[in-house]
Amino acid sequence: MVNITINGKVVRATEGEMLLDVIRREGINIPTLCQHDALEPAGNCRLCMVEITRTEWDGWKKYVTSCLYPVEEGLIVSTHTSELHEIRKTILDLLLANSPHSDVLQKMAEEYGLHKTSYEPNLEGDNCIMCYACTRICEVLGKSAISPVMRGHEKVIAPPFGEEPPDCIGCLACAHICPTNVITWTDENLTRTIWKKKFELIACEKCGKATISRDFAEYLIEKRGLPKEYFNTCDDCKRVELAQKMGALVDKAKEVAL
């Protein structure tokens, strides 16, 4: 265990823990866009920056991204100085310039007193803030169907050659994790379309309700050794099935231990 000071309060933390986790555990609100617990921290959005110093640094201080900074004994952390306010505001201002239509960004910027971007807005902006959450989650899944393409300001997130990504299994993790809801998909009847690729959705054997994509189910079956038949029916029908099985047991035993 180590002791650190956050905004004047001494806090205990476990060695190896990241500052952001400790700060949030203390109930302090720090905005983030690229952070997600299912992902390794990346430090892309820079919103979680905090100021750190130590007594022996003699007044010298530096700014670090708390999502990536492991706690150290004796660290003195400030999370809401005026300089940090300015940093976060500027970052949101820059993001808003490139994605002026994003309601998520607009809302965050409002909290910093920013009603519109100070820069020339890119009216064709697609709201993508290049946090890599989508590509990172796809990598965690073991697929890496999409990736950052090009570099610098031209960078976009895209499938290889801008076409249907061969490795995509239509799980929608990328779309769900996207903080600015850029990645769109459609589910029509039993067909899911994402990244221009079409997927068959499994229809419940009993009621016909669509569940997950067949490719995703097959991937889970193969990767995690799950029985194939688990995926044949939808959750509603499976619950009814369970009730019936329990009922059958009741008729025998009158009492069932769940």
């Binding site: 990346a42 430090g43 892309n44 959005c45 820079r46 500027t90 970052i91 820059l94 993001l95 310039a97 490139n98 803030i129 290049m130 890599y132 950052p148 090009m150 570099r151 610098g152 300001h153 031209e154 960078k155």
Partner: peptide, 12 residues
């Protein structure tokens, strides 16, 4: 030449 990963460098 910016790699495009972090906001201040890419957008700033």
């Amino acid at each position: 030449e910016s790699c495009g990963k972090c906001v201040p460098c890419r957008e700033g």
